[in-house]
Nucleic acid binder design. Structure first.
Length: 713
DNA sequence: AGCACGCCGACT
DNA sequence: GTCGGCGTGCTC
């Protein structure tokens, strides 16, 4: 008899807890259901991880589950197993992964509210309160508040003790507001009985046929589809139909939501198929609706950005990661997992086929595909436009002479042009001519950029803004602009050089909201704009017309980053940007750079991935970088630098003590010391063996409580 | 993550 | 002498 449930909570605790299931609830208890249970002095929503008839060893007071919120599980069994492994691989608590997988409305959290009692009010009026107590009473007189908002207003870390003290004295009351969202079973998930007409293209390449054969085989396999978007479209359509035909479902990941919509509109799922779109920025109601469609079996596939990896789909037969090399799949600090690795893990767990696709693969993935003989080359499109590289060293102006000449010629002809710039604002910063000080962001360790149009200093890390001043905030001396090379400066120069030409900007400052962005693109498409200045914000737009001329300015700036993958980023970004040029011999892409001989720029100019890969993989081999070795990049974060430094030293000592053939580098300050008020310290591990790395990390992180992000490569 | 317990400096 | 700051440990 199962009388106990193992429950996992959405908390940064890496363990589960056991509860008794009261007989009245017994019939509804199932693995994957949400439950409400007492936890410490709180009441929390958790998930049933397993049902047992015995308790784990050790003595503790078993408590009863209060309520079961689901009539059918919110998580399929296979998904639970997958999410547990995902959490373990990325050293992240399982409960947090599960929480990320649910629409927030389904994880009710009790919210404490603190209010002033009549007695408290009286005490305040009679002047019987002083100091902090009085401060809190005054705050509450204005209205009911949550403890965290009190903490913020009063500038105290934890107002808890004071609240409890005053509650005991009868001056304030607290009450808990909790929503209980029941989710009744939605009838029987209904077997799909759709007759699919499978139309297979018999002229398809044998390789793709091989991939098709693996679908529905019920075992894991993985392939890389290399080819232009149009060729991938045809391939995906075949593979998706084949999957649905085999009675299984599809997870389809794209770098951006608009690309997911585009694939669905293109009919990737076949006629009349039911595809859900899921992403975390969907408005609550809509997100819940799409999620329900998936859990209740009404969707044959889930499309969307990285978070779709956590869609509660069952019977997954195919997982597609399109634009595999896109950085939206990366794991910046704070993210729970890295998407490609997570997709591979899920495919393994679900015994599904994993397809990565792009026209410009990451070095790691390409290397792996070659080694695993899983590369499928789709019809490449020969490049017909010209590419020129222009050296701008020693040139004082914004545009090199050759670029200016080309622009003049093109614009005179009535051609449209796109100019890609990778710096926001006007100039990258200001400094004081007297004391040399450069104003920094109050929350980040980053110099503020100058934005001329709004007259502001803007932090390009956290986007906070300060009114620009012409005098040094430190010594009052006059401030001097650094070399103006931002997109605003480009715009200014363009308007100066070509006063009759219509110019528009497409960046997060000028075209902030999505509606405005659409309008700019629409104007460009209708020819109302001749020259479009754009940041990388443009690269995922599919609705931009191909142009006869595009310029890519200073793509080499990325090479200055302390990142072994910098060359690859340069190659990829240039390749993406040249993708906006019409593929005909009359069209041209021009790269203006101060590093014209760098292999990534040369290869990108030639449109030759093989050439780039050959050089890059050789460097990786020589330098012993991934994929020839494995790295674990551990980022620790905290508000208090001293405490953080102590903990990072402690971690490094632990890691070194664990031995194995693991090299420990650091701790050291991260490239950007502070972001949004959080200091960042880095420890890097290097090992030939990924399993060793994992084992060492697991041991070192045991009972080590710090906010951290672990990236494995 | 909360919440409680326990230990040291500055105030009534 | 207490109040109140935060380090440490626990939550079935």
């Amino acid at each position: 008899v199962t009388v106990f449930a193992e429950v996992v909570f959405p908390l940064p605790i890496d363990r589960t807890f056991h509860y008794r299931i009261p007989p009245a609830l017994g019939s509804r208890a199932a693995v994957g259901c949400r439950v409400v249970a007492p936890f410490g002095r709180r009441t929390m929503t958790g998930i049933i991880a397993s049902l047992t008839d015995a308790l784990p060893p050790g003595s503790f007071d078993v408590k009863d589950i209060r309520e079961i919120l689901d009539d059918s599980p919110s998580f399929p069994a296979a998904f639970l197993a997958f999410s547990r492994k995902l959490a373990s691989r990325y050293f992240t608590p399982w409960g947090e992964v599960l929480q990320a997988a649910l629409p927030p409305s389904l994880v009710p959290r009790e919210r404490k509210k603190v209010a002033l009692t009549p007695e408290g009010q009286l005490a305040l009026e009679k002047g019987r309160l002083s100091g902090r107590d009085r401060e809190l009473a005054l705050l509450l007189k204005a209205g009911v508040r949550t403890p965290s908002s009190i903490a913020g207003k009063m500038g105290v870390g934890d107002p808890g003790p004071r609240i409890r003290k005053m509650e005991k004295a009868g001056l304030v009351t607290t009450h808990v507001i909790g929503r209980r969202l029941r989710r009744p079973a939605a009838g029987i998930p209904g077997k799909r009985e759709k007759q699919l007409e499978l139309e297979f293209d018999r002229t398809g390449r044998p390789n793709l046929a091989e991939v098709e054969r693996r679908i529905g085989a019920g075992e894991f396999s993985s392939f890389y589809l290399l080819g232009p978007r149009a060729a991938r479209e045809a391939a995906y359509a075949r593979l998706v139909r084949r999957t649905l035909g085999a009675g299984r479902k599809v997870l389809f990941l794209t770098p951006e939501i608009s690309l997911a919509r585009d694939w669905i509109e293109k009919g990737i799922g076949g006629q009349g198929s039911a595809m859900a779109i899921l992403h975390s920025r969907l408005p609550g109601k809509k997100r819940e609706e799409e999620w329900r469609k998936i859990i209740e079996g009404g969707a044959e596939g889930a499309f969307g950005p990285r978070s779709v990896l956590l869609a509660p789909l069952t019977e997954v037969g195919l997982i597609v990661v399109d634009e595999e090399s896109d950085e939206s799949y990366d794991q910046p600090e704070g993210r729970l997992y890295e998407t490609r690795g997570g997709a591979e893990l899920r495919a393994e767990e679900e015994k599904a086929v994993l397809i990565c696709g792009s026209s410009c693969p990451s070095v790691e993935a390409y290397h792996k595909a070659l080694a695993g003989r899983s590369l499928v080359v789709l019809d490449p499109e020969p490049r017909r436009f010209i590419t020129t590289v222009v050296d701008d060293r020693g040139h004082k102006g914004v545009f090199a002479a050759a670029l200016e000449a080309k622009l003049r010629e093109r614009l005179a002809r009535g051609d449209q042009a796109i100019l890609f710039v990778n710096r926001r604002g006007y100039s990258p910063g200001i400094f004081c001519s007297k004391c040399g000080h450069s104003p920094k962001c109050p929350h980040c360790d980053i110099a503020l950029g100058y934005h001329k149009k709004t007259g502001q200093w803007v932090c390009h890390s956290c986007n906070s803004r300060l009114p620009a001043s012409t005098f040094c905030p430190e010594c009052g001396g006059p401030l001097v602009q650094k070399r103006a090379r931002g997109i605003e400066a480009m715009e200014e120069e363009l308007r100066r050089l070509f006063p009759r030409v219509t110019v528009a900007r497409f960046d997060s400052d000028e075209a902030g909201r999505e509606g405005e962005q659409d309008k700019v693109i629409e104007d460009f498409r209708r020819g109302r704009i001749s020259a479009l200045l754009a940041t990388r914000l443009l690269v995922h737009r599919l609705d931009v017309p191909k142009v006869p001329f595009a310029a890519i300015l200073s793509p080499e700036t990325l090479l200055a980053m302390p990142d072994y993958g910098a060359s690859q980023k340069v190659y990829q970004s240039i390749t993406r940007m040249t993708g906006f040029v019409a593929n005909d011999p009359d069209a041209e892409a021009l790269i203006q750079t101060s590093n014209p001989s760098h292999f990534s720029i040369r290869a990108a100019a030639a449109g030759d991935f093989g050439q780039f890969y050959g050089s890059e993989i050789e460097i990786r081999r020589l330098m012993n970088y991934p994929p020839f070795t494995h790295l674990a990049d551990i980022q620790l974060q905290g508000k208090d630098l001293r405490a953080l430094a102590r903990k990072s030293r402690d971690l490094a000592v632990r890691l070194k003590g664990l031995g194995g053939d693991v090299e420990v580098l650091g701790p050291g300050m991260a490239a950007v010391t502070r972001i949004r008020g959080q200091y960042r310290i880095q420890v890097i591990l290097k090992s030939e063996n990924r399993e060793t790395l994992g084992a060492v990390l697991r041991k070192a992180f045991d009972k080590f409580r710090v906010k951290k992000t672990v990236r494995l490569s």
